[in-house]
């Protein structure tokens, strides 16, 4: 994708996907979260330009949409790497050693939580319980769930993402 396409306007596919969500709902503004997730899907994050374009499409103010975007953990208002690495830090994973796993991930990627690897491949973020507590400690990379994860597994896991 060229630089110009990464900022607004929204692509025809994005508009179509957002309109399909609106069709399930009584009014356009109700699709705010769906729309943010749809646009983030391909672009990785929500830029100010994307935000303004979505607000325009939904007929709401940019400020209103931003207050919604910033409320939710999974909507990113800053650029992230190609794959978001989420290491669960909730209680079952805590009991099964998630602190050690996070340490190993930090070392392997060379970043702290919130950081992105220099090659732009991975962003490391903490995440609450992934609903995989029987596979603790668990982590998710992009849309893929892994667990239980040992430090030795990390090369294999990260190797699967370009």
């Amino acid at each position: 994708m060229s630089e110009a396409q990464l900022i607004s306007p929204l692509s025809a596919e994005e508009v179509e996907a957002i309109e399909a969500e609106i069709a399930h709902l009584p009014d356009r503004a109700s699709a705010a979260i769906d729309a943010l997730l749809i646009v983030q899907e391909k672009r990785g994050w929500i830029s100010d330009e994307s935000l303004a374009a979505i607000a325009g499409l939904l007929g709401m103010s940019t400020a209103d949409l931003d207050s919604i975007a910033t409320f939710y953990n999974l909507i990113y208002r800053r650029p992230v790497g190609r794959h978001v690495v989420m290491v669960c830090d909730s209680v079952s994973c805590y009991v099964m050693g998630c602190d050690r796993l996070r340490g190993a991930v930090e070392e392997k990627l060379g970043v702290k939580p919130g950081g992105t690897t220099e090659d732009g491949r991975f962003t490391l973020l903490p995440i609450v319980c992934l609903g995989a507590c029987d596979r603790a400690p668990a982590m998710q990379v992009g849309k893929e769930l892994f667990g239980p994860v040992a430090a030795d597994d990390l090369d294999g896991i990260f190797g699967g993402f370009d």
Binding site: H24, L25, A29, S30, A31, A32, I33, D34, L36, L37, S67, I68, F71, Y72, N73, L74, I75, V128
Partner: peptide, 29 residues
Amino acid sequence: LELAVHRSGGRYICGEETALLNALEGKRA
């Protein structure tokens, strides 16, 4: 009957049923 899936933006409080309704309406939960 129409059935649709709404994906959450992610916040524990969305599970509380009235907060969930706000989230479903596209608002802060």
